[in-house]
Write a protein that binds this DNA or RNA. Structure first.
Lengths: 197, 197
DNA sequence: GCCGTATGTCAACGCTTGTTGGCAACGGTA
DNA sequence: TACCGTTGCCAACAAGCGTTGACATACGGC
């Protein structure tokens, strides 16, 4: 044994003097990962944005992988679909995802990183499995079809986000929000509740 | 002016001794771009795969960007939708895209690269605008709605490819082909021909 | 006030990257 | 045979990367 770990007398979840720095790093990291993807979001650039030394990133997050793991935690905050009229579930979901994508860059980061980085892809799988699946299962007519229907919903949602926020395919990027909802809502609704393909 | 370009007496499209090498480079490049994305697909790795020296890549394609431009030319080979029963257009399109994605890695390369690289994103926009839009316009009921409907179709197609071939979201990656067609076909059909959102 | 720890900076490491220029072998043409 | 453009390999370059360890400073409990 080399030496004892001694986390000094720090109460659980106690505030550290370095909390502001940690938060700055995390914020800068999320921005960079969202804008550039995993490889081009360098630790040096993130540190520059956060106005600290690159070595601090290593101290607080261990490695670039560790930093991404911390920066990519995410809660979809999905609404309980049993509280909206059953026929509105599709539209409600589309609206909710548009909101989340627009006000939290972590989703774009996950999309950009997940495409070339294994850890990012795993995180994306987790999020959709652990957060979307249960919500879908509650409105799904046939028990056991939850995973399939969740995958279908995510395919349409992810495709929309890809075209609108990442690839910026012209009409998709500029389409008014409610027009998008009107087109995609029924699709998602069908994936959620239609009896048969 | 520095010096004259002198392409020596080579008839148009004449065969060069280096054609095999050029093809090997292009093949290796497509594989690497598809598997790794732009940044992680290094010129050195591509050269190793093609069993030549990295400097040959530079000679024949000028730069990494030039190599990608050459490796990412792509023809969707879309069928003429006016030759299938109008009610089958959606399913036909989904089947066709599944085929193209499975037997040509360039599409996966475009997806992986387009997400983090501006040139890749531009290529993707081009392909869908120049190749998908005209085909959609022919079956579109309202003239002028072609671009919008093409964007909607591509959102569902790209989302499917992302989940199935890149992120490998479990149920989407393993779903039998015809089950996918049965689910997505009607969606695409609606985007193509439905009168109103 | 003292002391141990937490916070932060600096300089350097080993490695990989895209890219360049020089040089040897080849092959068709005159 | 002599020539010259083509094809290919090699060694090197500057720049950037993630990561490390030594060192200065500030803080907070005693």
């Amino acid at each position: 044994m080399v030496s004892e770990q001694k986390p000094p007398v720090r109460p659980i979840a106690g505030a550290r003097r370095s909390d502001a720095t940690r938060a700055a790093i995390l914020g800068a990291a999320r921005e960079r990962f969202a804008a550039d993807g995993y490889e081009r979001a360098t630790i040096r650039a993130i540190a520059r944005d956060a106005r600290i030394d690159p070595s601090m990133v290593m101290r607080y997050y261990g490695s670039k992988e560790g930093l991404f793991a911390a920066a990519s935690e995410f809660d979809l905050r999905l609404p309980d679909l049993s509280e909206v009229p059953r026929s509105e579930a599709g539209r409600a979901l589309v609206r909710h995802f548009l909101d989340r994508w627009e006000d939290d860059e972590v989703l774009t980061a996950l999309l950009r990183v997940g495409v070339t980085n294994a850890a990012g892809a795993r995180r994306m799988q987790e999020i959709f499995r652990e957060q979307l699946e249960p919500v879908v299962a509650k409105v799904c007519p046939v028990p056991g079809q939850g995973p399939t229907r969740a995958a279908l919903v995510s395919s349409q949602i992810l495709g929309m986000a890809l075209g609108r926020f990442v690839l910026r395919i012209a009409p998709a990027a500029g389409m008014p929000r409610e027009e998008l909802v009107a087109w995609l809502g029924p699709t998602v609704q069908r994936y959620l509740t239609a009896e048969l393909p």
